[in-house]
Nucleic acid binder design. Structure first.
Lengths: 216, 216
DNA sequence: TAGATTGTTAATCGATTAACAATC
DNA sequence: TAGATTGTTAATCGATTAACAATC
């Protein structure tokens, strides 16, 4: 049975993982339009891939469809929520309260998805003590003590490049094992610590590449 | 000759394009450490791929190394700047002056890379007329007129989900053919218009997936 | 020259797609 | 039941890697 593969430790290909959030988003759309069922063919059409890919991707996690019918939107949505781990909440700390950090702290859709920022840290004395989205900005030096007291499922790193590795080290030292990193580096972490990087500049450079390639 | 393939219209695989910014970033690092030469083996080691992949990726664009020596950092950097289109500047408009838009407007590394935001637009009467990073926030309804007067190489879309497609339509109508989109949709655009999406939530969901998978 | 390392070709690997028996 | 569509297997496609002749 396909779902068993997971617990056997079989890895899910990266490509599959990248598509799951797309599927999930589309299912939310379908639900909001009160669509009850969808076939893999319709689904593929909507998200821009083949029906076979939809079915094959989902089969990594189990059998969620019904022959001759397709998938029930509400069922598949519930399954994807389970797969993506959206049936619980996540407590987070944010390090870096510059413009980007502030933007992330006040981004509602994260909270709606169950990610709650419980504390904000920065080194800048000008920022420390200020309130942002209902939270006081704390001095970075208090981070280790904070992590000792408070459970923290993940950290958001939105510092400048230069500070990022040190920040990650302090977080890992404090027991944080999942990091969402916006600094333009690939932080080095011990095995077992997850890092998901958002490289804004890389994305911009890809766009520049394609602009350039088109014009040539 | 490999470089010729480009002008013949041969497409560069997505994977290659995604790695170019990583290579570029590492070369900047090397230069700042005054490293003069590097072999594909050292390079691969540093960025986490094989030597063969480095050489194969670069060979899509030409022959930049020297047998028995490797690559001269300054030369390869110059070549990558050309490939990525970083030898010119790009004029941009920003639509959406919320927290994320403001963060992007004041993100120095974009300007350093040659991307200059010339105008900021929003629909919110509270924001219109305010200044941010030296630019006045203009009413969105003035965007078409602005695009008629002013050259614009690309647009940054940092609006809520609901507004994004309409904004993209207005931009495309106004002649903008490259869009850096931060709204959580895949905008529909005519052929020939480039869209690079940054899906913050998708990235967060991938992290959640891996957290969940690890704990099971 | 001898040693090192490229650019490229061939071999391998993995991911995507097409096809179809199973079955709702 | 007949029609539709799944989950999965086999075929295809493309990307990565290993190997090596070319050569600095």
């Amino acid at each position: 049975m396909a779902a068993k593969k997971r617990s056997k430790g079989l890895v899910i290909p990266q490509g599959v993982v990248s598509r799951l959030p797309i599927y999930y988003r589309h299912l939310l759309d379908l639900r909001s339009q009160s669509v009850e069922r969808i076939s893999s063919a319709q689904f593929g059409e909507a998200v821009g891939c083949t029906a076979a890919q939809i079915r094959s991707d989902l089969s990594h996690f189990g059998s969620f469809g019904q022959q001759g019918y397709g998938y029930k939107v509400s069922d598949l949505l519930r399954q994807l929520e389970k797969i993506l781990g959206l049936t619980r909440t996540y407590s987070a700390v944010l390090v870096g309260a510059g413009n980007l950090g502030k933007a992330l702290a006040s981004y509602d859709s994260f909270r709606e998805q169950g990610f709650v920022i419980n504390a904000i840290f920065d080194v800048d004395p000008v920022l420390i003590g200020n309130y942002h989205s209902g939270k006081v900005i704390r001095p970075f030096k208090d981070l280790p003590a904070y992590l000792k007291k408070s459970k923290c499922d993940m950290a958001i790193v939105a510092t400048p490049k230069e500070a990022a590795q040190e920040v990650v080290d302090v977080l890992v030292e404090g027991g944080v094992d999942s990091i969402w990193n916006f600094a333009p580096i690939h932080p080095v972490v011990p095995r077992g610590v997850l890092v998901e990087n958002i490289q804004l500049t890389d994305s911009l450079l890809r766009l520049a590449f394609y602009m350039n390639a088109r014009d040539n």
